[in-house]
Design a protein around this nucleic acid. Structure first.
Lengths: 75, 75
DNA sequence: GGTGCTATCTATAACAT
DNA sequence: TATGTTATAGATAGCAC
């Protein structure tokens, strides 16, 4: 969906990876929200950056996400 | 992204809502997978249909999703 | 109640700043 | 490096089965 077709594999360049992460993360959360509204469905999305920062969307309750975070911490 | 611009609000027609749910759910899971691969990030998506059916994607471990399911059951 | 088609809308890759 | 712009790839709304 850009100037060139992109192969789905890990982006080698650190800066490009960061920029793509930021843009696509935003897009994913937006689409999750749209799905929940349009279709009256419960949707939750959780994204962890490789630095451990958490980004999420939940149509129902933050508790879902917090629980998931706790679960992940126990790995 | 279709023949017409769509307002983001609950789709009234039951059949249209179901079709949209199916299509957008698939798209959301695909994008979650792409994000995880391209950016080397942990991503989890959980979708519950209003009939309680579970659809999900997790880049890390099914345990995350199973835990979330258990948590949700306790609501 | 799906599935396939395709016109059109949207997300985003590369570039610019 | 973070943010804004634009050309293009990709997702999908409305139909037809």
């Amino acid at each position: 969906m850009g100037r060139k077709k992109v192969e789905i594999k890990r982006i080698g360049d650190k800066n490009s990876r960061q920029v793509t992460f930021s843009k696509r993360r935003k897009g994913l959360l937006k689409k999750a929200k749209e799905l929940s509204i349009l279709c009256d469905a419960d949707v939750a999305v959780v994204v962890f950056s490789n630095r451990g920062r958490l980004y999420d969307f939940s149509s129902t309750n933050r508790f879902l996400i917090k629980s998931l975070h706790i679960v992940r911490s126990s790995f």
